[in-house]
């Protein structure tokens, strides 16, 4: 049996390696299961993977689940400012009743999770450091994710929406003065060449994005028992690797920026609380209003220690 896996990253990216581990392990198990990886958005565009996945036209994908927030608004909780504090907290969230509730939503779309995983991100400023809400006031800012846009707008930033590939030029020419996205995107788009300050994810971080390896549920159920077992065992291995590597990414990105001569700033615990208070009034509030069982889901997430 051949399964097709699509993702948007280069073959050096941690998320490709996660997929590759699953593919290699399954192949080694010798259960007549072959995973063909289509990386670097060679098959589908990043935001257009969830629809074919849910309709069974694609078997597997690794993607930020919030990309599908338009199909299942509940997924917006997987990119919510301040909801996740650090990588260990993220791992606990992945094995909580909150995640079970989300997986129930995925099941509605015939989708299931094979590998859980969160990646963190930070802020860059063209002229100054961004650590607390006051810092973004009046700045043209590009945020990654709807909830971040709402929170930053609440902090008085002006939101400019554009593709992450445009960030470099926009900062260079001054169209943008601040941006927020994942550690790996900051590095791969070489943003360190154009900014003066970087606030990476550290002991606390605001920006965590859930980026699981998903599979079409019917496709999984169509496999025989040996294949299913092999797939689940491979996924468990990949998940352990994912968590370890995710922690290393933030430090690695900070190192790249520091080497490029960019100032590094740190978000203090008070800063984090200030952002979180702001997020409660803006993005959390908007989420609860928009999603029918939003409050319950949010409570489930907040209940995770």
């Amino acid at each position: 049996t051949e399964l097709r896996l699509s993702h948007q990253w280069s073959n050096k990216d941690i998320r490709h390696q996660v997929a590759q581990i699953v593919a290699d392990e399954v192949a080694a198990a010798d259960v007549d299961l072959d995973i063909k990886i289509f990386g670097s958005k060679s098959l589908f565009k990043p935001r257009e993977q969830y629809k074919p996945l849910s309709r069974g036209q694609l078997d597997m994908t690794v993607l930020p689940l919030s990309y599908a927030g338009g199909q299942q608004p509940a997924y917006n909780l997987t990119l919510m400012p301040g909801l996740v504090k650090n990588h260990d907290h993220a791992a606990r969230l992945s094995n909580s009743p909150f995640m079970e509730a989300l997986e129930a939503k995925m099941a509605e779309d015939d989708v299931m999770v094979l590998v859980h995983g969160y990646l963190a991100g930070g802020f860059v400023g063209k002229d100054k450091c961004i650590t607390k809400p006051e810092d973004v006031k009046g700045l043209q800012t590009r945020a990654a994710g709807k909830s971040f846009e709402q929170m930053l707008a609440g902090a008085g930033a002006s939101i400019a929406s554009m593709a992450s590939s445009e960030i470099y030029n926009a900062i260079q020419t001054g169209v943008l003065q601040a941006a927020n996205t994942s550690s790996s995107s900051f590095v791969s788009y070489r943003i360190y060449e154009q900014v003066s300050c970087y606030t990476p994810a550290g002991d606390v971080a605001l920006w965590f994005m859930y980026q699981p390896l998903l599979m079409n549920k019917s496709a999984f159920e169509g496999l025989n028992e040996a294949q299913q077992t092999a797939l689940l065992e491979a996924s468990a291995k990949a998940e352990a690797y994912y968590l370890e590597e995710a922690k290393k990414q933030d430090a690695a990105s900070a190192k790249v920026f520091a080497e490029a001569g960019v100032e590094l700033a740190e978000m203090s615990a008070e800063d984090f609380e200030a952002w979180r208070t702001l997020a409660m009034d803006t993005s959390y509030k908007a989420f609860v209003e928009e999603v029918k069982d939003g409050q319950e889901l949010l409570d489930l997430a907040l209940a995770v220690e």
């Binding site: 589908f44 565009k45 257009e48 629809k51 074919p52 036209q57 554009m162 593709a163």
Partner: peptide, 18 residues
């Protein structure tokens, strides 16, 4: 034949670019 289903979706997606 099922892959034909995807054609309009992909076509739309290719144009979905600022």
């Amino acid at each position: 034949p099922r892959s034909l289903e995807l054609m309009p979706e992909i076509l739309f997606g290719k144009l979905d670019n600022f």
